[in-house]
Design a protein around this nucleic acid. Structure first.
Lengths: 107, 107
DNA sequence: GGATAAGTTCGATGAACGTCGTAGTTCGAC
DNA sequence: GTCGAACTACGACGTTCATCGAACTTATCC
């Protein structure tokens, strides 16, 4: 009740604020790596619930938050659904080759 | 006394055993990233003691062990000194662009 | 309005991690 | 043989991290 004023549209770091270490830390987890791979495999945005990872929904939220803070993924709210996408442009501009190298890995 | 039989020459993973996740985990630490940058900055091998990082020697040993197990650096023993070098060839073959992207980072 | 669906927030818990100091080993020099 | 240098191995300690369940918010649909 009475609570419809401020609603920060999420909060992502600007391109200049993204650090390698942050990105590497964000990618250094099997679940998050799986999420990034799934986002990279499609052209479209992906909803949280459409990700297939072996953890709870609250844990997915946590991982997406870390990926967002690191500047790896972007999130867009639409109704009760949050659409996520890879920040390819920014990552490629800052660390050319990094993302491709990670995605090229067979294991 | 009486202990001069087995002395494993260190133990590195074969190229096929290196995983992206292991490499990313290994790189996701400021001290280890600094070590990798110093190794990348020179053509020569670097002794543990010649690395300039703000931690104790035993901690350096620990970090180098992690980097070695992940397949990021190679170590060669010579007397009491251990010379370390980046496994550029292997990393570039497995994850083309990854290392360059990391090293290209301004921060 | 009520019900449902999609995410988030908030502890709590147990595991993994980075750091250090001390002790130990191995080699080279005296 | 003795000494020092270069690391390594082993505990120990404190912090960070991934995970979960339960409660909550917000929007959509009937």
């Amino acid at each position: 009740m009475a609570k419809t004023d401020t609603l920060p549209p999420i909060a992502h770091p600007a391109r200049e604020e993204i650090t390698v270490e942050g990105v590497l830390r964000a990618l250094a987890d099997p679940v998050r790596l799986a999420i990034v791979r799934q986002l990279a495999a499609t052209e479209h945005e992906v909803a949280c619930g459409a990700l297939t990872v072996p953890v709870t929904k609250s844990t997915i939220t946590h991982h997406l938050s870390i990926l967002r803070q690191a500047g790896v993924v972007a999130g867009r709210q639409e109704g009760t659904t949050r659409f996520n996408s890879l920040r390819r442009n920014d990552l490629d501009a800052l660390f050319p080759g990094l993302l491709n190298g990670v995605l090229a890995a067979q294991r």
